[in-house]
Design a protein around this nucleic acid. Structure first.
Lengths: 151, 151
DNA sequence: TTTAATTCGGATAAATTTGTCCGAATTAAA
DNA sequence: TTTAATTCGGACAAATTTATCCGAATTAAA
């Protein structure tokens, strides 16, 4: 009965982040990434990943191009200004920053839950981190072989 | 398609933490808390909470007593040494500390995912916080009316 | 113009988490 | 000893998340 895996983000968001990093890497090299490329490269389920990419396209975080040689891309000049927080926000919303750690609907500095202050600290760290991490740094660390998206 | 609520813990764990804090408060006053007391006090679904309490009893975090005037309790002298981390561990496991932020099965300092270092920092903060927060401080803040478990 | 490669979108299915129901077991009190 | 209050445990149901399938729409290339 206990959870198999407690992840910070939904699966959709995990795949989404990985996909966007890969698309960014390709875009920096003036190439598009097709769905097949992406799922092969990040090792994710194809149809499900397609849905996630659709959502990211609707949110204007990536651009989609239909037809032969189509695929997904990100404008080179945008890659530095896109932050991890935008991707997370588009897929998982903002309750990771805002919601109460114990699930209370009402929980704030005036009427805090017992862990309110402690969680506020952690979550603000998380938020700062996501807001300060750019797609550019993630994509270049991948390009230079320092980091990995599979396995 | 995006998540309604992205919570740090499972619902089971949220209810579990709230329940244990309440039981601790009662135990500090030499009283037992019955399932009904608990679900009324923390505003949680009764049958589901019962399962969570069973798990916590099996994990020896709380003690259960059947029969009239039965309920749940925690030995007074244990309340200070029980940390939030034990409750979370019993209900959600330890993947919140250990798992990769992007869901990779292999992800470590040698073969890191692009966000590995940044997540390691955040998660270590979270872990420290959970390991350093005792049930005693949470229960007394509730007792003194500084914090709340409902709404 | 035809073909083929691609994303889009809707329906559906599987897996997991959340939640309910109810009888069995236990045990204190009447 | 009987009754009633309680937790325990198993089966089941609902909701959400994860995942698949497939035809439609688009569009570049042949």
């Amino acid at each position: 009965m206990h959870r198999k895996y407690t992840t910070m983000f939904s699966k959709a968001c995990e795949y989404g982040i990985r996909a966007v990093i890969y698309i960014a890497q390709k875009s920096l090299n003036e190439e598009r990434a097709s769905l097949k490329d992406i799922t092969a490269e990040i090792d994710s389920p194809e149809a499900f990943t397609a849905k996630v990419l659709q959502q990211l396209a609707r949110a204007k975080i990536i651009n989609s191009v239909k037809g032969p040689n189509g695929g997904f891309e990100i404008k080179k000049e945008d890659i530095d200004s896109i932050k991890l927080s935008e991707i997370v926000n588009a897929l998982d919303g903002d309750s990771i920053y805002k919601g109460c750690g114990l699930g209370l609907k009402v929980c704030n500095a005036n009427e805090p839950c017992p862990v309110h202050d402690k969680f506020t600290t952690i979550r603000s760290e998380l938020r700062k981190m996501l807001e300060n991490t750019s797609l550019f740094e993630l994509a270049t660390s991948l390009e230079t072989g320092l980091t990995y998206l599979k396995r």
